[in-house]
Structure formats: C-alpha cells, structure tokens
Design a binder for these strands. Structure first.
Lengths: 247, 247
DNA sequence: CGCTATTCTCGTACGTAGTACGGGAATAGC
DNA sequence: GCTATTCCCGTACTACGTACGAGAATAGCG
C-alpha cells in the first residue's frame, strides 16, 4: 500500500501528492490473511476529534495512533500519508451536513440554509477553515454537498459552472467569517486577553495613530458586536444577492 | 533577543506567539559592539524570494540563511522565530501595493483599483493567499493599505467597522479567487497534467456519475475559461455591489 | 595603542516531525 | 497443521525549529 510517490516539491507551492482514484475507491476486503484491527473511518474520526480538541497542530501521526490504541506505523496500513489523512478528515466532516432531500422551491431560502449549515459545521470543527485551502480532491461527502448546491441553484437561472463558482465563493466567505468570529471570541478568553491588549496598545501607539488615524480608531473601537448570528445572516444575504445578480 | 515565550499550544488551534509591540518597533541601533552583517529587511526579502520561487514549504530557516550567506542561527539575531518571519514577509509583500495618494472621487473605481492591485500582488506571491489566514498582527504596510481602503470607502456612507468588514471580505474573495486561478493554470502545466487527468477519471467513474450527475458534468466540462481578467472583474463588481448595498 | 564591555556569528545538539524498512505475529484456506 | 497472505509496529533515518554558549568583531575608553 506504500506509494512510491514522486512527491518532491515542484517549483510551485502546490504539490499534488494525492491520488483521487485510489483514495476514494471502495477498497475491497481481502479475504485472506490477518484481519485489520482498525479502519480508515476510525482513524479519520480520531484525527478529527484530536483536531477539534487541540487544534490541527496536535494532529500528528503519533498522537492519532495513540488515540486509536495502535502503533504509529500501523496507521500507514490505512492511510498512505498525513496529507491524505487531512483529505479524509475534510470529507468526513463534510458528511455531517444535514441536507434536505430536495429543494423546497424557494432557492434563496435553501441557499441560506445550506450555508448556515456550513457555518455550524465550521464552528464545530474550527480547524476546517484553515484546512480547506489545502484540499486537493473532492471526496464523496463533499461531492454530495456540491450536488445539493447545484440542485438548489438550478432555479436561479445560471449555468452549472457559474453555480459552482458561486458555491466556492460563498464557502470561502463562510470560512473567513467563521475564522473571524472565532478569533473575536478567543480575544475574550483569558489566554487571548494579553495578546489582544498588546495589539491594542500597539495600535494606539504614536507611530500608528499618526500615519493611520482612521484605522487606529476603527480597530480599537469598543466594538459591541451586536449579534453574531444576525451579522452572519446579513452578510450572507448580501453576498447571495450580489453573486446571483444577472447583470 | 531570545524570547522566553510561553508559546505552548493552547486548547484551541490559534496560538498567539507574536508580540506586536516588539515586532513593529523602530528598533534603535546599538552604538557599541560588532555591527550586524545583515538586516531584518534583507532576511525577509530572501524569505519572500524563496517562497516565490519554490513555495512556502521551501522557506526553512536553513534555506533562508543559506540564501543570505549566513549561518542558520544567525537569523535569530534579527527575527525571534519563524512564525514572526512569516509575519514580516506578509507585511513586506503588502508594501508592494501601488496606491494613489488620495481618492479620486469615484469610490467604486478606487475600490476596484485597490483590489486589482491586490490580485496582482497575490499572483506575484502565490504563497500569500495561504499565509494570510495565519497572520496575527498588522504591520505598517498592511495598516497603510487599510487606511487607504477606509479613505476610499468614506464616501460610500458606511461606518468604519462596516468598511473594515467589507475590506476583509473582499480580500478573502481575492485570495480564494487567485488560488483558484493559479490551480487552474497549474492543471495545464506538465507536472499538474497527470493529477488533473486522474481527477477527471475519478469524477467520471460510475460511483460519482451515479450519485452526483450534475457535479460530474460541471466539473469535467471542457471549461473554456473566457478571460481570467474579465471573470475577476465581473465577480469583483458583483461583490462590491452586494456588500455595499445599504439594505 | 591596547583593554574591555558589548554585540553579532554560528557550530553543536536536542526534541519532535513524517515515514522507509523489515522482521514478527495473526489469520484463512488447504 | 502448513503456508500464503495480511497486518502490526519497533527501529531508525532525515529534516525541521531552535536553545546554548563559545568565539569573533567592533566602539569607546584609558
């Protein structure tokens, strides 16, 4: 199962080290030999739980193996490498989407529902926004979500490529918004407090207030965020309106 | 200059290991002792050049030091750690923005110009979209860009917090769009070709086309991207319209 | 001029990653 | 039982970030 992989980093940043065909194949059970003590799904779930609890940085092959009760190298019987494990984690999380079986008729409402669902998902798995840009392939759960998005957007009167584009942009919006939300909440935390204060002190220093008065004021404003949910909904609506306008 | 840093990974993913006040301080020159052979800017520039040429993954302390002609540990006289070096890289790149001294009167045109500029920047530094989410503080160049954005958006009739929000969302849009553009272009490259073909084969497999017919069709469409520039401009306009609507 | 405090330089070394390798253990079918 | 097959995982290698501290280079003082 070990791949010879010519995964040397190319001249570009992107490295295509994942094989979609092999990854998402059904993987028939061998009928002879010692039966596996674990499963790909179990390992993926352990990695997700670890990332949820202690952040993406805590997901090491050793830590995941320990959590499952296996030796480190045993993981490589189920997953070719860590990059691929990340891919599996993303798709497993995507499987948590609760999608209605069919569009309701009001495609704007359906779209809003879909992205509210996505927001919940990302709040539940705070590592997801950071992991998404590194994704290289679409797993079955991701594809199912995409299929649903296309079905929802069908009555909107744009082609499939445009619909995919919109889905991608809205997902990006949700990711960056959730990142922002979580950062804001972390600033209230005791650990984040010191950092937040240092940041505010720096922004109020003469060097900043002289050159960038408006920024200094806007960033250090007390900022009573009214309601996270309402803010999200408002922005989401505007994004939907702007992106689906047939201009 | 070594910091004692309690940088242990907290329960969350975000680790605040950067001190904004110390980082962006003018750093007065010591008048005694051996003079430095390098500078923070030189090291940052070397790191940026490395990332441009071989991707973010190639930016290791050893590689940067070698490029500058210094021993690895010498870097730590100029930069407290790698995380901070990344922060410096981002701000140095932000300094490449070519911004007009004052708003022109047509704030939509100014806004379009700003984000076209940002797109050029990210295409010139393909690691930037991936690095931005990890940013912890705003350096002087980033602040200058923000100040410019606020000045541009002043006539639009929204408050400073709303303007910042819009700037952030549009930057996120540009980042994800550039990532998409570059991925598309990489697929035409000889190295990316094999991966792209494998992806297409997978998407046309029975397992996918059965469950997700629309997606399979949309993703494997020949996809003659009309003109990258026009596409970007069209989407940017819609985003601006949607986000600045006073609804 | 040499002395000395100060500052920068960088070889060595430690801890933690990902993972290649290969011998041993467990199982299914004969 | 025997054997082919499969899985398990200890050992070990490479590469990374970076702590430590000895040595080298300088500026000001005598």
């Amino acid at each position: 199962m070990t791949r010879t992989g010519t995964s040397g980093t190319g001249t570009s940043g992107r490295t295509a080290g994942v094989d979609p065909e092999a990854l998402w194949a059904p993987a028939e059970r061998p009928r002879r030999g010692r039966p596996p003590a674990h499963s790909r799904a179990e390992i993926t779930a352990a990695a997700v739980a670890l990332a949820d609890a202690e952040g993406l940085g805590a997901v090491t092959m050793r830590a995941v193996a320990a959590r499952v009760g296996a030796g480190t190298m045993s993981l490589y019987s189920y997953v070719p490498d860590k990059e691929t494990l990340l891919e599996l984690m993303i798709d497993q999380a995507a499987g948590e989407h609760r999608l209605p079986p069919a569009p309701s008729g009001d495609w704007r409402a359906d779209l809003r529902h879909l992205f509210h669902e996505q927001r919940d998902l990302m709040r539940r798995h705070p590592w997801l926004p950071a992991a998404l840009p590194a994704r290289q392939t679409f797993g079955p759960n991701t594809l199912a979500t995409l299929e649903h998005a296309l079905a929802v957007l069908a009555p909107a009167g744009l082609g499939a490529p445009a619909a995919l584009e919109i889905f991608s942009l809205l997902s990006g919006f949700v990711a960056s918004h959730v990142t922002h939300e979580l950062a804001q909440e972390a600033a209230a935390d005791a650990t984040g407090r010191a950092f937040h204060d240092a940041q505010a002190r720096y922004l109020r220093s003469a060097a900043v207030t002289d050159a960038c008065p408006k920024v200094a004021e806007a960033l250090t404003a007390p900022g009573g965020t009214p309601s996270p949910d309402a803010t999200f909904d408002r922005l989401l609506n505007r994004m939907i309106d702007g992106l689906t306008a047939t201009g």
